[in-house]
Every structure is written in C-alpha cells, then in structure tokens.
Design a protein around this nucleic acid. Structure first.
Length: 150
DNA sequence: GCCAACGTTGGC
DNA sequence: GCCAACGTTGGC
C-alpha cells in the first residue's frame, strides 16, 4: 500500500464535489510522469491527500482512496473538452486515469503550514520548482501529516 | 498579472 | 540527439 498526493483545482473538482459524487475519474492529467504513476505504481486501496491547487487557499483538503486501476481518460477523445488530445486514438489511448473515492474531508492544511514543518523538508510537493500533479508521499510524511496536522 | 521552473516541440 | 523557442503550472 502506497501513499500519494493528488492536486485538483477546486474550481473543477473540489473535496466537496468528491464528497457529493463519492467517486470521480482523475481526468485531465497530461503529463507523462504523473500518468506513469497512475499506470505503473498506483494500486487499488492506496490512499492520497486531496490537494487544492491554483486557488486562493492552496493546501490539503481531504483524503481519497484509489478505487479503480488506470483506464483511458475519456476527455482526451472529446473535441469539446479542454483536455482533448487530437493525437490520441481510442485504440491507442495516450492518457489514462485512475478512479478515486471519497474518504474524508479534513481541515485545510495550507501549503505555508506544510512548508513550515522541518519534518516535511523532503516532501516532493515542497521541492523547489515541483509542479507534478501527482507525487508519492512517504509513510513518515503521511503519518506526520495525519497525526500532527489534521 | 507576474514570473520561475519545468516540460514539450520540432528544426537541424 | 541537441537545444532554442514556446507552453504550462501554480504560488504569489
């Protein structure tokens, strides 16, 4: 079992949206590293911090669980979607997504608060220039955040 | 809106 | 395969 951090713009899918919908496909990832995490490393049952990005109050807003393995991301085939990829075809899909289900909403653990913790110095999210939308979280980082900051 | 950092594209 | 130009991310 592994831990992850997954960024979502709350204007698109917030933790409240996930709570209401219960399960959502993690559509819209258009970065190969993040895609490969979903395809090669994520397992059903893995837990992830649900992170609000590109918003007024960036930070961890809840916890979700991977509930379906990687499958083609439908939005790549939809010309009306901002995630449309004309170079991808249904028989050879380029972009994949896992499904995640709601586990719980937490208090908002802000990015500045995360940065303040020496215990989280090596967390991938907090590294200089880091902008991957899916990053691994170590056991120690997960335990620290859930026990000390939530 | 700015801009640093990083990723992708495409000509050569 | 190199690398300049361009695009994107995402915090501020």
């Amino acid at each position: 079992m592994a831990y992850w951090l997954m960024k979502s713009e709350p204007a698109e899918v917030s933790i409240d949206d996930l709570a209401a919908r219960k399960v959502v496909p993690w559509f819209g990832v258009r970065n190969y590293q993040a895609r490969n995490f979903m395809r090669d490393a994520m397992q059903v049952g893995d837990l992830a911090f649900f992170y609000h990005s590109s918003c007024a109050a960036p930070g961890i807003a809840g916890i979700c669980e991977v509930c379906a393995p990687a499958h083609p991301d439908d939005t790549q085939f939809d010309p009306a979607s901002p995630y449309f990829d004309p170079k991808s075809t249904p028989d050879k899909p380029r972009w994949l997504c896992v499904d995640v289900k709601f586990v719980q909403k937490t208090r908002l653990v802000s990015l500045t608060e995360l940065r303040r913790q020496p215990a989280l110095d090596t967390m991938q999210l907090l590294q200089r220039g880091s902008r991957l939308s899916i990053t691994p979280v170590s056991d120690a980082e997960w335990q620290f955040i859930t026990r000390e900051l939530m």
